[in-house]
Each structure stands twice: as C-alpha cells, then as structure tokens.
C-alpha cells in the first residue's frame, strides 16, 4: 500500500503545513523530508515527545504506542514517530505532549 494521503499539520498559533504522506511512511518522516520540524524524542513510541492529536482522518501505529494510555488513544492522540496515515488527516501538533498528564495536585 503506497497511496499517499494529504496530512495537514496544525499548530495552536495558527500555522498550518500540508504534507503528502505515503501510507508506508510515518508523519514524522514525511515532515522531516519536507523540512518541517516537529518535536521528537525516542522515535520508538515510548516517550510521547512527538504526540499529536488526530482531529480528522485516521492513522495506524507501526509498533505499540507505549507512551499513550487507553484514554489518550480514545481521545485521538497519536505518536507521529510511528504513525502512518490511513486517510487524509488533520493533526494538531507542537507541544501536544503536555495535554497527556496534568499537575496531579493542582
């Protein structure tokens, strides 16, 4: 499956970038090829630094998304270092990791 999907990356401040992402490539790889810098860490799905939120469309993780809990996956969060598009997508990016856990005492 090598169909490419149109993936729109949207930052909270309003910046938007559109990428063409083949179905066998991760969003992070495609962004790197296009010269679009996204937060990144372990690149193995363990750390969550690259977390984005899929607002429309769908992605599939290449390996288990260990950094995300069930509640995160249900809310559309995805790890862009291991996420391949399965449809055209709109994904919120840039510092999304801080959505996952709050200050538990405040």
């Amino acid at each position: 499956m090598t169909d490419a999907h149109r993936v729109v990356l949207a930052w909270d401040e309003g910046r938007v970038e559109a990428l063409s992402v083949p179905a066998d490539e991760t969003v992070l790889e495609a962004a790197g090829r296009a010269g679009v810098a996204l937060p990144v860490g372990c690149r193995t799905g363990a750390c969550g630094t690259c977390t984005g939120r899929v607002l429309a469309g769908s992605v599939e993780h290449r390996r288990p998304p260990r950094a995300l809990k069930g509640r995160h996956l249900a809310a559309g969060y995805a790890l862009l270092c291991i996420a391949e598009p399965r449809a055209d997508c709109r994904i919120r990016v840039g510092g999304v990791l801080s959505d996952l856990v709050e200050n538990p005492w405040k």
Binding site: G41, C42, A46, C47, G48, T49, T51, R66, A67, L68, K69, L97, S98, L100, V101, P104
Partner: peptide, 12 residues
C-alpha cells in the same frame, strides 16, 4: 520504566 516516566508524571 521509560514508557512510564517519559510522557510525564501520572499519579495513576
């Protein structure tokens, strides 16, 4: 485990 502390501190 890294998968536990990497994303942040979760009391759960």
């Amino acid at each position: 485990a890294p998968e536990t502390y990497y994303p942040g501190f979760d009391l759960e």
